[in-house]
């Protein structure tokens, strides 16, 4: 009798679990392609806006080259992005590279960068000229605080980086390197600012090295 009851209980619970899993499977089959498609379109739209309608080339990934890595670290140290003993893995922080070309010649690069903000990981699409100067950017995934870090979703936020990043004028990585009014604007969301600046500085220096090679 006891056994029977246990069996019955297990049986009923199993049925509930099986039905639940089945329903979820069906919902997943319906929604999964939609989710993937939606993400693709979202990225395509962002790339289109950022490239100003110029042709966006095939996605590339950071080269696995020790020489490039050493050069990059040297540049980052020189620009005060990292300390002399520090080391970054650019292959983890630059997740995609899109060359933008005008009639066949590459004029700009769009980089997908990963930064760390107040709410954790931030994904950023940023456009750089071949000399590494910043053009514009769009903050994609993020968990920043509304009213504070979320302000970085506004395209106007990136005006303070505009044109900076070439060899004579590095991307500002601390508030001291900003104009007073800009420094005022990012106060209260320093973590977000630091995360974005660091990502942009890395992107700018990477493009500088890339620009010469292509």
């Amino acid at each position: 009798m006891v056994n029977n009851k246990l069996l019955d209980m297990t049986f009923r619970l199993t049925i509930i679990c099986a039905v639940a899993a089945l329903i979820l499977g069906i919902v997943n089959i319906v929604t999964e392609p939609l989710i993937i498609e939606r993400k693709r379109i979202e990225k395509e739209m962002a790339l289109k806006t950022l490239s100003d309608g110029d042709n966006v080339g095939v996605v590339q990934y950071p080269a696995d080259s020790d020489d490039l890595h050493m050069d990059l670290m040297a540049l980052l140290v020189e620009h005060g992005v990292i300390g002399a003993e520090d080391d970054l893995d650019e292959k983890e922080l630059i997740t995609s590279i899109y060359p933008v070309d005008e009639a066949g010649t590459v004029t700009k690069y769009i980089l997908q960068l990963e930064g760390s903000g107040y709410g954790g990981k931030m994904i950023l699409l940023a456009v750089f000229n071949l000399d590494g100067s910043f053009v514009k950017a769009k903050l994609m995934e993020n968990n920043e605080t509304p009213g504070l870090g979320k302000k970085a979703e506004d395209p106007l936020y990136y005006n303070m980086y505009m044109g900076r990043g070439n060899s004579s004028d590095p991307v500002p990585v601390s508030r001291r390197a900003l104009a007073d009014s800009d420094a005022e604007a990012v106060s209260g969301s320093t973590i977000t600012f630091n995360g974005i600046s660091k990502a942009l500085a890395l992107g700018s220096d990477y493009v500088k090295l890339l620009g010469g090679n292509n």
């Binding site: 619970l13 679990c17 639940a20 329903i23 979820l24 919902v27 997943n28 989710i35």
Partner: peptide, 20 residues
């Protein structure tokens, strides 16, 4: 446990629909 399975299924449905 039975209630939890039921609730979790509905939550997953909401989650997937929202993502889509």
């Amino acid at each position: 446990p039975a209630y939890i399975v039921i609730i979790a299924s509905f939550v997953t449905i909401v989650d997937l629909l929202m993502q889509a």
